[in-house]
């Protein structure tokens, strides 16, 4: 999913760092949002809704909709789309998936 080379914007040169999502380790690039890093790792589901336990992911991408809420290093309801990844960050999805 990563656009490593772009005809106008050039090459991606950001440094690689590590994050975990629901206990699993993934690579992320310095400076990107949690949502972008997870998507680059093919993860789309960020939370489950309360009423119907439906999966939700990025919707607005700029902090308006709160659909991308995740728990970051223990802090709940952080918006993944406007929070920058940091090395060693522990991220968890919110809500309960239907079993």
């Amino acid at each position: 999913m990563r656009i490593k080379k772009h005809p106008i914007l050039g090459k991606l040169e950001e440094k690689e760092i590590n994050i975990t999502f629901n206990g699993r380790e993934f690579a992320a690039l310095e400076g990107e949002s949690i949502a972008a890093a997870l998507l680059a790792n093919h993860i789309r589901i960020l939370s489950y809704t309360e009423k119907r336990q439906e999966p939700r992911g990025i919707y607005c991408g700029i902090g308006h909709c709160y659909e991308c809420r995740v728990t970051v290093d223990g802090e709940r309801s952080v918006r993944a789309c406007i929070t920058t990844v940091k090395d060693g960050m522990r991220i968890e999805s919110q809500g309960e998936s239907p079993k």
């Binding site: 919707y59 607005c60 308006h64 909709c65 709160y66 659909e67 809420r69 309801s77």
Partner: peptide
Amino acid sequence: MGICQGRT
């Protein structure tokens, strides 16, 4: 009435 306060 939800968390996004009607923005969507």
